[in-house]
C-alpha cells in the first residue's frame, strides 16, 4: 500500500483546486489508503477561523478540517515559520514542522500530489 501526501498550495476561494484536492484525499481515505495533508502558500488561508463564505465565494473548506478525523486523516502539516498564523485564531489540529523537517517530509511518501 502506498502512502500518499496531498499538498495544497492554492487559495481556497480563487479556484476549485483545494476543493478537488481535498475530495481526492477523502476518496483515498475512503478506500483505506493512508493519506496525509500538507499546506503552504495561499492554501494556508483554509486554517483561519471564523470563515463565512457566501455560495458565490465557494464551499467553506475550513469546516471540513474538523471532519477529517472521521476519514482517518490525522496528519496535517505546515511549516513553522508562518508566523502570521499565530496572530489569529486558527484550526488547532495542525502539526508544525521546522524547515528541515518540512523538506524531508516530502521524501517520506511514495507519492505526492499538488493542488
Amino acid at each position: 500500500m502506498k502512502h500518499t501526501l496531498i499538498h495544497l498550495n492554492s487559495s481556497p476561494y480563487s479556484s476549485l483546486a483545494c476543493k478537488e484536492g481535498l475530495d481526492f484525499a477523502l476518496v483515498l481515505a475512503t478506500f483505506e489508503q493512508p493519506v496525509d495533508l500538507c499546506l503552504s502558500g495561499a492554501a494556508l488561508a483554509i486554517l483561519t477561523d471564523n470563515q463565512n463564505p457566501t455560495a458565490e465565494q465557494g464551499k467553506n473548506l475550513h469546516k471540513l478540517l474538523d471532519g477529517l478525523e472521521f476519514y482517518d486523516i490525522e496528519n496535517i502539516f505546515i511549516e513553522k515559520h508562518h508566523s502570521w498564523l499565530s496572530n489569529q485564531p486558527t484550526w488547532q489540529g495542525i502539526q508544525l514542522l521546522n524547515e528541515a523537517e518540512w523538506q524531508t517530509m516530502f521524501s517520506q511518501y511514495q507519492q505526492v500530489f499538488r493542488f
Binding site: 475530495d23 478506500f31 489508503q33 507519492q111 500530489f113
Partner: peptide
C-alpha cells in the same frame, strides 16, 4: 470514471506522474 479508478491505477502501477 470515479476517483476510485485512480486509486486502483495507483495500486497497480509503479508510479503516478502528475502534470499540472
Amino acid at each position: 470514471e470515479g476517483l476510485g479508478t485512480l486509486v486502483d491505477l495507483m495500486n497497480t502501477t509503479n508510479k503516478i506522474i502528475q502534470f499540472r
